[in-house]
């Protein structure tokens, strides 16, 4: 009795908390699905939730009734209840009804599981292929048909099926864009498949969902769903950017020119701009066009300078060495200026 009242009193608190936060933020929350896969999954959650609410209500009702009705009242000390052994009919009822409920639930479970794993069945021209590679603690995106390699910001066209081949360079990560659909693990030495589709233009937050070390919580990326036209434009720009060496076709200020030298001498062993440079760190061809530094920090020069000086102060465990002592403040300023010229937008 008391317990029931207590939990009743708690209910408004939960509801208020829920109302305050809505169902999460658009572009972040799986409860605000923006793509076919996420919508299917949300509907599956809803079906199962409804069945489960029925179960909870039935059990809750019987439980509460029994507790109130059969509680010990004063003056009943000598009362001995009837010692019931069981009841075959009742016991069969609560064996069979759950089986029926589960059978009902099994139908969408099976069909949706197969439908959503359906890969490589559409015509090649209808899908966009993207190879995703997880690294400690960033994401690499490769468009094999377009010959584009980029990192952190993932461009996809709205309304088109995008097939991901997901793998990892080091340890196990998991690729998750909650608003567009469920996750897949990125396993070293293996490739997993996943398809997603965005219904609406916008930026969707992606994250890593398998513990991968110190900065597991900071392994964000942005999925930028753009119109088909815009996407084609971006592909063209990127292709041009990938081909041209960093020193060509760019009008640079004096400081940026100095920064380019610094970059060549210090950064290019790991980072590539265009098709020149190392593959260890993220490709920076379109660095200036990105939304965030490291996937989540504000995209400003001061943040990038902080990053160059001491990457681990932003992402603990990041592989990039500290350049705070190796480079002078001047050099770092110049480097930041240079990085902010790395745009492919025409």
């Amino acid at each position: 009795m008391k317990k029931w009242r207590q939990s009743l009193r708690l209910l408004p608190l939960f509801l208020a908390a829920l109302a305050l936060s809505g169902c999460g933020k658009e572009g972040v929350s799986a409860l605000k699905p923006e793509g076919e896969v996420a919508k299917e999954q949300a509907s599956l959650m809803l079906i199962s939730l409804l069945i489960m609410i029925v179960v909870v209500l039935v059990v809750g009702f019987l439980f509460t009734y029994a507790m109130i009705k059969y509680r010990k009242r004063p003056g009943q000390e000598d009362y001995i209840p009837k010692q019931v052994e069981g009841n075959t009919k009742l016991e069969l009822t609560w064996t069979i009804i759950p089986i029926i409920l589960l059978c009902i639930l099994a139908v969408p479970t099976i069909s949706k599981t197969f439908a959503l794993s359906d890969n490589n069945t559409s015509k090649k021209s209808d899908v966009l292929k993207i190879k995703v590679t997880g690294h400690q603690f960033w994401w690499e995106f490769e468009y094999p048909d377009q010959k584009i390699t980029t990192a952190q910001d993932l461009y996809i066209p709205v309304g088109k099926k995008v097939e991901f081949d997901i793998t990892s360079k080091d340890l196990i990560h998991a690729f998750w864009v909650p608003a567009l659909g469920g996750k897949q693990d990125a396993n070293p030495g293996q490739t997993n498949h996943l398809w997603l589709k965005a219904d609406k233009e916008g930026t969707y937050k992606g994250r890593c969902a398998e513990l991968c070390g110190s900065s597991h919580a900071l392994m964000y990326f942005n999925v930028k769903a753009v119109s088909d036209k815009e996407f084609k434009h971006w592909v063209k720009d990127m292709k041009a950017g990938m081909k041209s060496a960093p020193d060509k076709d760019r009008v640079l200020t004096a400081s940026a020119k100095q920064g380019e030298e610094v970059f060549k001498n210090n950064c290019m062993s790991c980072h590539a701009v265009g098709n020149k440079g190392g593959q260890i760190g993220p490709n920076l061809t379109n660095f200036a066009d990105r939304d965030n530094i490291g996937g989540f920090e504000k995209h400003t020069k001061s943040e990038v300078k902080k990053w160059i000086k001491d990457p681990e102060s932003i992402k603990p465990g990041a592989k990039m060495p500290k350049f705070g002592k190796k480079l002078t403040d001047d050099q770092i300023n110049a480097l930041a200026d240079y990085l902010f010229t790395l745009s492919v937008k025409q």
Partner: peptide, 8 residues
């Protein structure tokens, strides 16, 4: 236990 939903 529903795999497709469990992906979320």
């Amino acid at each position: 236990a529903i795999p497709a939903a469990d992906f979320q």
